[in-house]
Design a protein around this nucleic acid. Structure first.
Lengths: 192, 192
DNA sequence: CCAAATAATAGAACCTGTTACAACTTTTGG
DNA sequence: CCAAAAGTTGTAACAGGTTCTATTATTTGG
């Protein structure tokens, strides 16, 4: 049941190959046969690890957020108000995602396109995002229990952020509008 | 350049066929060959009108919002506060969409999956949504110019609503959570 | 009304995600 | 160490979105 080192490496290679292809050509360029080839595994193996292209790309997004989350875990987040701290985290992550537009496009579109069968991976992404925002609000790495109201606010902020990324990914809006959207939402939802 | 009555009818038949299939089986059940058959047109004709399955389904969403918008245009929206009025419109539309879960799933997923080539249709949907919310805020059918801040707030509300629909469409959340999400966002963004 | 342009049709072909399967390799429990 | 189980491979086949083409209406400008 648990995975051997060889299996972890295989999984990494597949994810890495997918992200490389995505970074170069976006969603459409991530072709399952090519991912398998580049990762040096058989097509069937790729499908054993990731039941579909969407699973694969959402897993990639999750791993990307894992990094982002790790950063916020290391040290307290700077900023005097919850607003400032949340913006610091989200704007920072946004900028980092925007450095690889095609990769972001691929992952975000997969995330939004995902159906019920991808629930596990989707919730993983959602949970990571929730924890990041919760920490930013609290201002410290340890997560005090969020109230129901706080949880709802966090969900709204996460929704706005993902939607803004979608709009950016498909060319509807520019980088500055993404930041603007988040800023409005955060400012109004988390008044100083 | 302009379209003849026959063409409008053809377009309607194709949209209707797509929506029927979607209503019965969701996104996957909308198969282009079958849409063409059911609409009584050749596959090539379907593609002449709608360059892709996503275009087709986003156009369907747009037509659905057109109805919703028409309703809000007819009479002033009831409710004492902007919050009440916006909730009335959005919750009402949500309930109506939820009566055909599979159709909604198909349209919403297409909308979120859409790439840059669908920009026109996407903006149409966005504009309709924006106008509806703006009217609900204003409380009357005539649209006073929205301030920049109002526009940003409207965008955030629309984002939250679409995200909530996505979560509902793929089974992550139930009907009540959709309403809850919107309510939190609207309450905080549009304090009485 | 006619010729050119435009639209529609039927059908095959193509591409890529997904599935199926038979042979082979690695891991695991005893 | 061995047999069973689980994992991997390579390849073929299938499915549905999309493209292409030759042919046949239909529309339109003169």
């Amino acid at each position: 049941m648990s995975s051997s080192p060889a299996q972890r490496e295989r999984r990494d290679r597949m994810l890495k190959a997918a992200m490389k292809l995505a970074a170069e050509g976006g969603y459409d360029a991530v072709q399952m046969r090519e991912v398998a080839d580049d990762a040096g595994v058989a097509l069937g193996t790729l499908y054993r690890y990731f039941p579909s292209k969407v699973h694969l790309l959402v897993a990639a997004l999750s791993s990307r957020f894992e990094q982002a989350e790790a950063i916020t875990e290391r040290r307290p987040i700077l900023g005097d108000t919850a607003h400032e701290r949340v913006m610091k985290i989200l704007a920072g992550t946004t900028v980092s995602l925007q450095k690889q537009p095609q990769l972001t496009e691929a992952m975000v579109r997969a995330f939004m396109f995902a159906d019920a069968s991808v629930l596990g991976e989707i919730e993983q992404v959602g949970d990571r995002l929730t924890r990041m925002i919760a920490r930013a609000i609290a201002g410290s790495p340890d997560h005090g229990e969020a109230t129901e109201e706080e949880a709802a606010i966090i969900r709204v902020i996460a929704d706005v952020w993902m939607s803004a990324l979608v709009a950016w990914a498909n060319g509807r809006s520019g980088a500055s509008e993404v930041e603007k959207s988040i800023d409005v939402a955060v400012r109004l939802l988390l008044p100083d």
